[in-house]
Design a binder for these strands. Structure first.
Length: 569
RNA sequence: CGGGGUGUAGCGCAGCUUGGUAGCGCACCUGAAUGGGGUUCAGGUGGUCGUCGGUUCGAAUCCGACCACCCCGACCA
């Protein structure tokens, strides 16, 4: 490809809307062009890389014996109503009507369609197991697209779905998929960690996410330095520091005046936060629920949702709190009636807590569970945080941020049950098919690769996903000798099977070098009168500072040594 | 959906307070000299000032409504 012909302008100045490095670089290199919020066109350079990533993914999927299919974006809404996910998906679903007023949705994911497909094609356990995958465009009306390709509304995803007659089969496929995913990231030059994840509204059991560790990541991850285990903060379990236990004292009402928050209370009473109880009021599926955690902890809403098996959860409004007969700032589980109490297991770990008295300006001290109040549910509903103890190895936990570039989970029968996709076992009895599902966002993966492979000058593409392997950079193209030599080498490189970006412009050396660095092509060949005098050209790897002089006749050999010949994988 | 911000040439911005013929840098075109890390000089092209409405002799500027985009939060299979 001649750079003079390449569609898509490179920008010198940084577009102001870009806030993450991958977004800035994707725009500056002219790889993407925004059409609307979270909607992008992919220019030739971007598409070349996307195709390479797709082919790596495809290759790894085929190795697991998954079969590639292609499912429609346009889906009848009835399928979503049937699976029970129409309501929980909410406004994320793009909805439309056809000319006959039939309601359709643009597929945000394909569990429904693929399960319907399985239903039509599976009758007995003999038809199982199998895995299907596709690389296809997903549509999600995200409330807030962000960060260039990091969260968009229209994007390419590889989604795979496995179908099984029993858990053992599912477990085996799941492990195969995990391995395939690891291979994908390794081949793409992206370091990732695998962490425990919440399986989301879909339900299901085991669930793991692949995270590219970066400060700009949207997810908070709790990791243990001791055993290297990690978990999404939505899911993370930890052992919280225990307060000292004392003999139980008698419940006592004390005046606390205007001191209402945990912070105010602890400094007023000169106690630590873990000697208090915190009350948080939630509005859950139409009901106000009283949630209690120890004062030093925060409620993990995902865990709370799970514990209560709820789909709709938010903080209660001031009015709802009032109407429930609760005094904000002094909310108390003691003496409460007609309202359900959910408590974190941490409340049992301490003694003689300070807690609200449900009376303006007053609190109780020496509150003890279960002596002074009871809870309908006691469960782990508190957030894990840095400094907590690892529940696996006893090490200390810390927090990092990550970008989700893949998610695998054991779906079980939650969808197949609803869609009525079943198989007959050896006895002819019908059972819902057991499913797993596995996703990789292709565009986000590309953004993550850039996010983790760049310097202040531009992208540093890993070889396997670089749009080109070689940047041919002749200086002084208006010199006929240079031009001829460059054209000649260009053809030679192409004939040898390399993908070459040929900077055929008559620009100054600085401009060319800067573009070469910005575009991040792994290997740069410079031809100039200076090196040509010695019968040589200069070769430089993008990630290295210095170039080497190589005799023209040795160039192909040297390139082969540097690039290897595996990049066509 | 809540909070904040922005909208003026392809990109980055100034002008708006105090209304009076729309500017700068980069990019682009022409010419010349240069040229090993965004070189210099000269000349030039390009804008319904987000949209609609109002005030006014006159609106990029003042007022109102709407729209779009960005950031934080909520949300996120």
């Amino acid at each position: 490809m001649r750079i003079s012909q390449l569609f898509g302008k490179r920008l010198r100045e940084i577009p102001s809307e870009a806030d993450t490095e991958s977004h800035r670089l994707l725009l500056r290199t002219g790889m993407i062009s925004q059409l609307a919020a979270g909607v992008y066109s992919y220019m030739p350079l971007a598409l070349k890389t996307l195709r390479k990533i797709e082919n790596i993914v495809r290759d790894e999927m085929n190795h697991t014996r998954a079969q590639e299919i292609l499912m429609p974006t346009l889906q009848p809404v009835e399928l979503w109503q049937k699976s029970g996910r129409f309501i929980p998906m909410g406004e994320t679903l793009f909805c439309l009507k056809d000319r006959k007023e039939r309601n359709l949705v643009l597929g945000p994911t394909h569990e429904e369609v693929v399960t319907d497909l399985a239903k039509r094609n599976v009758q007995s356990y003999r038809d199982l197991p199998f895995t299907l995958y596709q690389i296809q465009t997903k549509m999600r009306d995200e409330p807030r697209p962000r960060g260039g390709l990091i969260r968009v509304r229209e994007f390419t995803m590889k989604d795979a779905y496995s179908f099984h007659a029993n858990e053992t089969e599912l477990d085996a496929t799941y492990l195969q998929m995990v391995q395939a995913y690891k291979n994908v990231y390794r081949r793409c030059g992206l370091p990732v960690i695998m962490i425990e994840a919440d399986s989301g509204a879909i339900g299901g059991k085991d669930s793991q996410e692949f995270m590219a560790v970066t400060e700009i990541g949207e997810d908070e991850i709790i990791v243990c330095d001791g055993c290297n285990n990690g978990a999404n903060v939505e899911k993370a379990v930890s052992i919280k520091p225990k307060p000292d236990c004392q003999p139980l004292l008698e419940l006592e009402e004390i005046q606390t005046y205007e001191h209402e928050s945990i912070e105010q209370l602890t400094s007023f009473l000169r106690i630590s936060a873990n000697q208090t109880l915190k009350a948080v009021l939630y509005h859950i599926d139409g009901e106000v629920i009283f949630v209690v955690v120890r004062g030093d902890l925060d409620v993990n809403e995902i865990k709370l949702k799970k514990v209560l098996n709820s789909s709709n959860l938010r903080l209660a409004s001031d009015d709802e709190v009032k109407n429930a007969g609760i005094i904000a700032g002094s909310a108390s589980p003691i003496g409460l009636r007609d309202i359900r109490i959910v408590a974190d297991e941490s409340i049992a770990s301490g003694t003689n807590y300070v807690v609200g008295a449900n009376k303006k300006g007053y609190h109780f001290k020496n509150a003890n569970y279960p002596r002074d109040f009871q809870a309908e549910v006691i469960a782990d509903i508190a957030k894990a945080k840095a400094g907590d103890t690892c529940h696996i190895c006893g090490g200390t936990l810390r927090t990092i941020r990550g970008m989700e570039v893949g998610h695998v989970f054991k779906l079980g029968i939650s969808i197949s049950e609803k869609i009525e996709a079943s198989y007959a076992d050896e006895n002819g009895e019908l059972h819902p098919i057991i499913m797993g599902c596995y996703g990789i966002g292709i565009g986000r993966l590309m953004a993550a690769i850039i996010e983790l492979n760049h310097d202040d000058k531009g992208i540093i593409w890993p070889l396997n996903v670089a749009p080109f392997q070689i940047y041919l950079c002749p200086l002084f193209m208006d010199n006929p000798v240079i031009k001829e030599k460059a054209e000649c080498l260009y053809n030679e490189l192409i004939d040898s099977g390399y993908e070459v970006l040929f900077d055929d412009r008559t620009e100054s050396p600085g401009v060319k070098f800067n573009d070469a660095d910005l575009l991040g092509i792994p290997l740069r060949i410079t031809i100039s009168p200076r090196s040509l005098e010695k019968g040589s050209a200069e070769i430089k790897l993008r990630q290295q500072a210095k170039s080497e002089l190589v005799a023209l006749e040795d160039i192909l050999t040297r390139i082969k040594a540097l690039l290897g010949d595996t990049f066509l994988a």
